[in-house]
């Protein structure tokens, strides 16, 4: 890649990386893995850059790549990790201090409990503010599937977040 193209790539990556990391985090629930995913995704963007630079929607492509990387990670042998603290201590703490878990973590956990495709739909639609069509294109699926997966995901989120729903006005 030419120096000028590399400079453009770095400029793009600098502007997009943190947002992509946030998307990846909400997809996987682990900041470190999110950062790994962003790096992998940006390298894929780098490799594809010569054929991408004419496009307007670089950010959409990068987001799609991040989603793909995170979902691939989840399928990969040996990466099915449980990033929680000691499970026994965790359950004890929840019993003793039911309010100790912050709302943010609560939301991330509720999100992580969704099947991956529902999770991706919710994140892309409501965090990335993508349209149904854009989400379908990013996930390589149909608009109808996106609608149904999003609806199910929202329903599950609403049920899971019921405890904080009164303050967050989930509707």
């Amino acid at each position: 890649m030419r120096k000028r193209d590399e400079a453009q790539f770095i400029e793009f990556a600098a502007g997009a990386a943190r947002g992509l990391r946030r998307t990846a985090y909400l997809m996987c629930g682990d900041w470190q893995r999110a950062e790994d995913a962003v790096q992998d995704a940006l390298i894929r963007v780098y490799v594809a850059w010569p054929r991408l630079r004419q496009r307007q929607s670089l950010r959409a492509y990068a987001t799609k790549t991040v989603v793909s990387v995170v979902m691939d990670q989840a399928k990969r042998p040996w990466r099915r990790e449980h990033a929680s603290a000691d499970p026994l201590d965790a359950v004890d703490e929840r019993r003793d201090h039911p309010c100790a878990v912050g709302d943010r973590l609560f939301v991330v956990q509720a999100l992580s409990a969704l099947p991956p495709r529902q999770r991706a739909c919710v994140v892309l639609r409501y965090l990335e503010d993508m349209s149904v069509e854009e989400t379908a294109e990013a996930m390589g699926t149909s608009s109808g599937t996106v609608k149904s997966q999003t609806a199910r995901g929202l329903e599950s989120m609403r049920a899971a977040l019921g405890g904080i729903g009164s303050t967050l006005d989930l509707g």
Partner: peptide, 11 residues
């Protein structure tokens, strides 16, 4: 592999 990379409530 699914539903995700980690179990939100492994306990």
């Amino acid at each position: 592999p699914m539903p995700g990379p980690y179990d939100p409530a492994p306990e």
